[in-house]
Design a protein around this nucleic acid. Structure first.
Lengths: 221, 221
DNA sequence: GTCTATATAGGGATAGAC
DNA sequence: GTCTATCCCTATATAGAC
């Protein structure tokens, strides 16, 4: 009847999931380096010992959260079908990607330190970047094939890289430039806008106008 | 005759400077969060107590290094004269900026955490970003005035933002994508290339070809 | 200016009772 | 599954002798 795992006690899986959820919230809010296992236990009103019953160590928690994130990102990066992409498709996909990143934004906040300290995270993040790069390149090539834009191969490659870079670090940039810390979907929307502006100059005139009109509706910079 | 401060002993200022130099080297190599005051003292073969004679705390060291960095960056951001910029001017200025950043790359490695924890750093970094933004916008407008490129005001604004973002986070991006960790001037050159590629699509045909030719000579992606 | 010694605090992690 | 108690270690920072 219940959705709980069968082989375990009454509240089995419950505490474990609560630890992950609360850890995620606290990591996102204060930054992973500034949240200790004791903080997490305090917030959950459980003992530190209990926390260590469910997870070997702090990195274990981080890795499980990362796995969740990776799954979400894989979903967001999946190109649904084989028809040529439109600008609206790209806008939507970027929205999915930014949303996935936002949910696990602690990963991006301290990305270099996190991936430097933990080999597993490093490998998995590299894998995500690789997939994202392939996706970006494919989309740009699709736009060229659809004759929506014109670009040479080197231009596509450089632009794909810049799309990854701007996407990966938009949230950090927004913080250090003094953007609001709150979710404020506007901040993400502006990130999407910045990415679209990487593509805009390659568009044919009609589509470029179309995009700028689209953009003005969504963004007030 | 000597450049030493007059009121102090023989080696005055010497240890202090050595602390700054060694701290910088260690921060750059391992990341500031992973270098303790004890590590620094060990490396210098002085006592921790001695270190704390020269600096109130670790943040004090970081702030002094940041001040050095800010001075260097101010220099790199200074536009020499009032004539309209050429593509070569931009290439050169980007080189100066990237070099200044590279020397103090620890700041960029953990930028969000650093600026979140320390109000002073946050304010000063915001100031640098502001100056850089003004410089980028001015240069783009200069290119338009020189009729080297064509762009609307919104295009210039978005591109200026993307220039800041790519410049600020290029080194981080290069690390997480698995780029070499060594100085390897090639890595910085590729960052400069990525920034130039933000401008390229706005250039008129002749200049765009010129830039791509220029770029091919410098970069092997 | 430099050292030794030490205070203080906190984080990560475990043992063993319940 | 959970708690209490605790250990170990490391980091920052200070006091006081030299």
């Amino acid at each position: 009847m219940s959705g709980r795992p069968p082989r375990t006690g009454a509240a089995a899986g419950k505490t474990r999931d609560r630890i992950l959820d609360v850890s995620l919230a606290m990591f996102n809010e204060r930054g992973e380096p500034n949240v200790t296992t004791n903080h997490i236990a305090d917030e959950l009103e459980i003992s530190p010992g209990n926390l260590y019953y469910h997870f070997r160590n702090k990195d274990d928690i981080v890795e499980h959260l990362f796995a969740r994130f990776e799954a979400g990102m894989d979903g967001a990066l999946t190109t649904p079908d084989d028809r040529l992409p439109t600008l609206e498709d790209i806008w939507l996909q970027l929205h999915l990607v930014f949303e996935a990143m936002w949910q696990y934004r602690f990963i991006y906040r301290d990305l270099v330190d996190l991936t430097s300290r933990n080999r597993k995270l490093r490998m998995h993040f590299a894998r995500i970047l690789k997939r994202a790069g392939e996706s970006a390149t494919a989309v740009l090539q699709g736009l060229v094939r659809a004759e929506v834009m014109r670009a040479t191969r080197p231009e596509i490659d450089a632009t794909a890289q810049n799309i990854l870079l701007v996407t990966t670090f938009w949230m950090n940039y927004n913080v250090v430039r003094g953007g609001s810390t709150e979710k404020c979907p506007h901040d993400l929307t502006q990130g999407i806008y910045q990415v679209m502006m990487l593509i805009a100059p390659f568009l044919r005139n009609a589509e470029r106008v179309h995009l700028h009109t689209l953009a003005q509706a969504y963004v007030r910079a």
